[in-house]
Design a binder for these strands. Structure first.
Length: 370
DNA sequence: GAGACGTGGCT
DNA sequence: TAGCCAAGTCT
């Protein structure tokens, strides 16, 4: 493809040298100047965590992971459970399972070294076109076309691309490849992402501060927020279900089960629930309770997933230790002080909290509460 | 290609 | 507030 115009990498890189964000997975400018190279493990880990996830949400998780598992070998040697527990709350849990699979493949099959090309990286579990290009560019200096949501937005505005996403992806990718410099491809990608995150934002872009303002076609046209054009999104269906908080008499332990590896919240822990279906009737679902007991309604929680909205009726029962001990269970009883450490997705914590408000209450502060 | 797949923050 | 949105991947 032949482009009459390129997005100017030199201008963007000059801006990046002044305004880049300091991020835990990023080399400091001083370290970079001293000749340090980015650690492929940290680049990979951060890129997996950042898939569809905000920088703010990722930061504490990233810090915790690199503290617990500073190398790909240490992560590969970790059990699945501790990794899922640490991932709990970050969402998109298949990422955590792929993370483990990828670490083990790198540690065992590849001698602990990540492949250095985007082509090979993309063969690893959890690494798609974006992540492969990002790792190759940032860690291995490959002139790879890195295209994420930020970069799609920046380019669709800069060139006023009127075709809607995702159809425009191929066109955008060509523009990105053409503009990517051989010298600092990783910095170029990160500069675009910083620009998209801080100036060329979805809602109210700060065009007056943008280093690319001069050549930006959308800016010239006066309506940068008209780009990127996207297909209208579909309405979220509502599903309903019931969740059962079984509390063991005596110690207050809660019955947990491990969810099937495939599907929603796959491989994570949770309380027993009915299936989540589209049924709208007032049926309680108590008949699906995992144990005999005096089940009481503890409320209804709402939770919004990417593709549906859930309304979950929460039931609570105190189970006498006799029943708790004798019943056939495929789960386990988790004592109150262990509950916060379980691999519980947010929706499960929300359900448990509806019945047991103190379950995940923040640790009491020292000193007096006003 | 389109749908499944989480969560929390921001406007 | 109710959407909209975030450094996507897998099937």
């Amino acid at each position: 493809m032949n482009f009459a115009k390129l997005l100017p990498a030199d201008v963007l890189l000059a801006w990046y040298d002044r305004h880049q964000r300091a991020l835990p997975w990023r080399l400091t400018p001083e370290a970079h100047a001293a000749g340090d190279r980015a650690d492929p493990y940290r680049v990979w880990l951060s890129e997996i965590m950042l898939q569809q996830t905000t920088v703010k949400a990722v930061k504490p998780y990233f810090e915790r992971f690199v503290t617990l598992w500073p190398t790909v070998e240490s992560l590969a040697a970790a059990g699945e459970e501790p990794v899922l527990r640490e991932w709990a709350g970050l969402g998109y849990y298949s990422r955590a399972r792929n993370l483990i699979a990828c670490a083990r493949r790198v540690a065992t099959d590849l001698g602990g070294r990540f492949p250095q090309t985007s082509l090979e990286l993309q063969d690893l579990p959890g690494i798609g076109p974006y992540t492969a290009a990002a790792i190759a560019a940032i860690a291995f200096n490959e002139r790879a076309a890195v295209v994420d949501g930020n970069i799609e937005r920046v380019f669709s505005r800069y060139f006023a691309i009127s075709a809607p996403l995702p159809q425009a992806k191929a066109d955008i990718r060509e523009h990105v490849l053409a503009a990517t410099p051989s010298l600092r491809p990783g910095d170029f990608a990160q500069a675009l992402m910083d620009l998209g995150a801080t100036l060329c934002t979805p809602r109210s872009p700060a065009c007056a501060l943008c280093p690319l303002e001069e050549g930006c076609v959308a800016r010239r046209g006066g309506n940068p927020t008209a780009f990127p054009v996207k297909a209208p999104r579909k309405v979220k269906p509502v599903r309903r279900g019931a969740a059962f908080i079984a509390e063991r008499a005596g110690d207050g332990a809660v019955l947990l089960v491990k969810r099937p590896v495939k599907g929603l919240l796959g491989g994570m822990s949770g309380v027993p629930t009915t299936h989540w279906t589209a049924r709208q009737d007032g049926e309680t679902g108590i008949s699906a309770a995992p144990l005999a007991g005096e089940w009481q309604r503890a409320g209804t929680i709402g939770h919004v997933f990417t593709h549906f909205e859930l309304r979950l009726d929460v039931f609570h029962a105190v189970i006498c230790s006799q029943t708790a001990a004798s019943a056939t269970l495929d789960g386990w009883w988790s004592a109150p002080r262990h509950l916060p450490e379980e691999a519980l997705p947010s929706v499960m914590k929300k359900a448990i909290s509806a019945a047991l408000p103190q379950a995940f209450a923040p640790a009491p502060q020292r000193g007096n509460l006003a």
